[in-house]
């Protein structure tokens, strides 16, 4: 039962806009890896490339799964999800006119997740009791924090093995940021997940990350092999720690 994600020399963009320039990174089984960068540096674009939502013009993205190698640049988003990769997308992308519970059940659309639906639903409600209280409420009428919890829970309903989280802290009150990030760690441990988390909130990200990459203008400028290395980095000191 091993998982790995190997991204090599990925170039991608939107029409004439180039957003990623030769990005390479690795994720190993059960790690939590942070992708750190400020606005517009390409974090979401990289996540979309992994999910098959943006096609790289060059480079490879290979998911190793129990000995088999899958080239994600050739698969559709549906196929990638069916391999056990889930994304909590930027902007949450809930189905606003469906109820909380309907959103969660849609998370379990992929055939492999349907068998475990009762167990996963119970677990999501246990992890986020507010979702159970509000299971009949329309997702679009929930607060920002509740929507973020729902987006995370919905991704978990697909029983993923690799979870990508795009800026979980965005739009949340400071007190919620910390609890949401802690929750991701808790869920990760409970499910034995491997996590790639894009963040610009450095302090929050390193609370749960094992290591991280810094992305600037679509290039990985620093590969921090530990939290300590990240904290010592000049770029980090300049941009995030204000020293």
């Amino acid at each position: 039962m091993a998982l790995s994600l190997e991204i090599r020399g990925v170039e991608a963009g939107y029409g004439a806009v180039r957003a990623l320039h030769g990005v390479s990174l690795d994720i190993r089984d059960t790690e939590t890896v942070a992708l750190l960068g400020t606005n517009g540096n390409g974090k979401s674009t990289l996540m979309k490339c992994v999910m098959g939502m943006v096609r790289p013009t060059q480079g490879s993205i290979v998911l190793g799964l129990d000995g088999a190698q899958h080239d994600l640049t050739r698969l559709s988003t549906e196929q990638i999800v069916n391999l056990g990769v889930a994304l909590v997308p930027e902007g949450r992308r809930l189905f606003p006119k469906l109820t909380v519970q309907e959103n969660l059940l849609l998370g379990a659309f992929r055939p492999l997740a349907r068998g475990a639906i009762a167990k996963n639903l119970a677990f999501c409600y246990e992890a986020f009791p507010v979702l159970q209280e509000r299971r009949r409420q329309l997702a679009g009428s929930m607060s920002g924090g509740q929507q973020q919890m729902l987006a995370i829970a919905r991704a978990l309903m697909s029983a993923p093995r690799l979870l990508l989280v795009d800026e979980p802290s965005v739009g949340l009150a400071p007190i919620l940021v910390s609890s949401t990030v802690s929750k991701i760690k808790e869920l990760k441990e409970r499910y034995g997940l491997t996590v790639l988390m894009a963040e610009q909130n450095f302090h929050q990200a390193i609370r749960i990350a094992d290591r991280g990459y810094i992305i600037v203008h679509g290039e990985i400028v620093f590969d921090g092999r530990s939290v300590a290395e990240l904290e010592q980095n000049d770029l980090v000191k300049r941009y995030y720690l204000g020293t």
Binding site: P89, R93, L98, E102, R110, S158
Partner: peptide
Amino acid sequence: FMGRAIQAVAQDRGALQLMG
């Protein structure tokens, strides 16, 4: 599952792809 996906598809088709 199909029925709920039908209800969701016009709301956000990209998000539906993320559900597989």
